[in-house]
Simulated assay, not measured.
Amino acid sequence: MTNLWVAAAPLLLASTSRTRRTLLESAGLSVETQSPDVDERAVEAAARSEALSPIDLARRLATEKALAVSRRNPERLVLGADQVLDCGDKIFHKPADRAAARVHLQSLAGRTHALHSAGSLAQGGEIVADFCVSAHLAMRGLSGEAIDLYLDLAGPEVLHSVGVYHFEGLGIHLFDHVDGDHSTILGLPLIPLLAALRRLGCLAL
């Protein structure tokens, strides 16, 4: 059988995200996962002291995750990934509960926000490639009733999304216009990742 992935071991994804793993496997990559166990809020606090931009923050988070897993698995090629949502001057985090999710959607409704999706590849405790791609999403104006209906239909799973939407599911109903690659919106830009993997000799195609 012909394989697309030609590296000696599967790509090690420093994440337990089902969406990111599915994206990689759908592209024909051989993947294993491991939790990075990185304190993202501590990384963000340090980034604020350095006045990092949202794009640089996404890069920093992806890098810290890749390095954390690479140090434990120095012989493996490790992929760290993260995504930062910013709207105006505010960076959004995953909501803690439904009430917080409602506030998120009220803040984003009728406005355009940016999703900055970054990836870092590490091996032997060093970064060997990194990238960040942004998408811009214009959310429809939403009434309180519309927000409540959406949250009822979408269920608690949306609390795992920084924007309180699963773009690949019911979340698509929330938008007027989207400028960006689908995989970027889902949190892992595949085109620059695949280009990096080709440069590293991991892909047959």
Rank of each mutant, 00 (worst) to 15 (best):
M1C: 06
N3I: 11
V6I: 15
A7T: 00
A9R: 09
A9F: 02
L12H: 04
L13E: 10
A14V: 02
T16L: 15
R18H: 14
T22R: 13
T22G: 11
E25C: 14
S26N: 15
G28P: 12
S30R: 11
S30H: 13
Q34I: 00
S35W: 04
D37I: 04
D39Y: 00
E40Q: 07
A46E: 13
A46W: 07
R48G: 08
A51T: 15
A51M: 12
L52S: 04
S53V: 13
S53K: 09
P54G: 06
D56W: 03
L57V: 06
L57P: 05
A58N: 10
R60Y: 01
L61E: 01
T63W: 08
A68Y: 08
R71G: 11
R71A: 14
R72M: 13
L77S: 13
L77D: 05
A81G: 00
L85M: 13
D86P: 00
C87S: 08
D89F: 08
K90Y: 06
F92W: 12
H93N: 07
D97V: 12
D97P: 11
A99M: 09
A101K: 10
R102H: 08
R102Q: 03
S107N: 14
L108P: 02
G110H: 01
T112G: 09
T112Q: 06
T112N: 10
H113S: 14
A114L: 14
H116M: 02
S117D: 10
S117V: 07
A118L: 02
A122V: 00
G125Y: 03
C132F: 09
V133A: 08
M139K: 04
R140Y: 00
L142A: 06
A146F: 01
I147E: 02
D152W: 07
A154D: 08
G155H: 06
E157C: 13
V158E: 13
H160N: 12
H160L: 03
S161K: 15
V162K: 12
V164C: 12
V164Q: 05
H166A: 04
H166D: 14
F167S: 00
E168W: 03
G169S: 14
G171W: 03
G171H: 03
H173N: 07
L174V: 00
F175T: 01
V178R: 04
G180F: 06
S183C: 12
I185R: 04
G187L: 01
P189N: 07
I191Q: 15
L193E: 03
A195K: 12
R199Q: 13
R199W: 09
L200R: 11
G201V: 12
A204L: 15
